[in-house]
Simulated assay, not measured.
Amino acid sequence: MMSVIENRAIPILSESAIIPMYNLLKANVVRSRSPFSVILITIQKSSLKNPAIDETAKEFTALLQRKLRQTDALFSLDHKNKMEWGIILAQSGEEEAGAFLQRLHEEVHLEMNQGDRTMVSYAIGVMEVRNSGVPWPLLIQAGRRALQQSSFPSAWHIDYVGVAKQQEREAVKVSIIEDDEIARDILETTIMRMKVDHVKQQVRSFQDGLDFLQSDWFYSSHPHIILLNDILPRKNGLEVLHALRAMPNNGKFFIFMMTKRNAEEDMIHAYELGVDQYIPKPFNLRLLESQMKRVFVRLWS
C-alpha cells in the first residue's frame, strides 16, 4: 500500500512540463513491471455558489500539495479552469490510487465540508498505465470523456478507465544449444508453441557452444533462457556456462543444463558453476515444458 508522508508542498506543473515525466514513466513500465496511475479530478461547478468557488479551489489544491509524495506530480491541463486537477502517482496501480483517493476523501470531509461547500461533488477518473504504447493525448481524452459522462451520482465519484491497462507482451529470448539436429528442432517447435501471458518468446538454435558465443544474440538486456547441452563439439556446455556467468549482467540468464550425466557429484558441480536447472537425459518433454513455463512466469513477475 502506498504510504503518504506529510512533506513540503509540491509545485503545480503545466501540461508541457508533465508530458516528459509521463513519457519517461511509460517507457519504463514494461521493463520495470511497475504500473503508475494518472488521475483527473473535477468539481461540479453548479454544486457551489460563486463566492465559494475560488476558496474551494485554493483549499483543495493546497490539500493535494500536502498529501502527494515528492515522487508524484500535480498538474493543470487548463490554467483557466480552477476546478480541474491532474495527478501522476508513480509506481502506483489503480489499487494504490484508490487507497490514496479514499484517504483524500476523508481529509476533504474533515477539512473542507463547511457552509456552502457541504454539497460539493467531485468526479474522478483513474487511469492505470501498464502499456507503453498509449500516447498522452489519448489518455487524457479518455479520462476527460469519463468525467464528462459522469452524472455525479455521489459527492465523491470515481471511474476507473482502462485505456492503458492492457499489459504488453515482453520479449524473452530462448537459446537452444544442442548438437543433435532432431532434438534442436523438437525443442524449438515446442517452445515456439508455448502460450504464456505477457511473454513473447524469441527463439534461436545453435549447433555448438562456439557458434553461440560468437553470435551477438546474448548481449541484449532481455531476460534470456538457455537450454544447454553439456557435451558439444566446440566449446562444451561448461565453457559456455562459465562465459555467461562471467558477464556483468548474468542475472538475466536462466540456464537449463541438459546432460546424460546423472551422478550426484555432476549435479552438484553444475549447480556450483551457476546452472539453474539440471535436466538428465532422456527427459520428459511435457515436464520440461512445464518447467519452462514456470520460468517465464518468474521472469515476468
Rank of each mutant, 00 (worst) to 15 (best):
D78A: 00
S46W: 01
D211T: 07
A263T: 13
A62W: 13
I176F: 00
H224Q: 02
L25E: 15
F100D: 03
H224G: 12
L68K: 03
V38M: 04
V29S: 06
S132H: 15
F60N: 07
I177C: 06
F152L: 00
L213T: 06
K195F: 01
A62K: 11
I88H: 00
F212C: 09
A164E: 00
R33N: 15
S32G: 12
E170I: 08
P153M: 00
G93P: 02
V174F: 03
L147A: 00
Q44C: 12
Q148R: 13
P282D: 10
V240H: 07
Y160D: 01
A246R: 11
I226A: 01
S175N: 08
I182K: 05
K82E: 11
I12Y: 11
H224L: 05
G237A: 10
Q277N: 05
R234E: 07
L238Y: 07
G162Q: 06
Q102D: 09
D216V: 10
V30R: 10
F256R: 01
K82H: 14
S301N: 11
I5S: 04
I255F: 00
L244K: 09
A52S: 08
I255Y: 00
G162L: 10
K195L: 12
L244G: 09
I176E: 04
G237D: 04
L110R: 15
I5Q: 07
E239R: 12
V134F: 05
M257V: 05
M83C: 02
I255G: 01
Q114F: 15
Q44Y: 07
D211S: 10
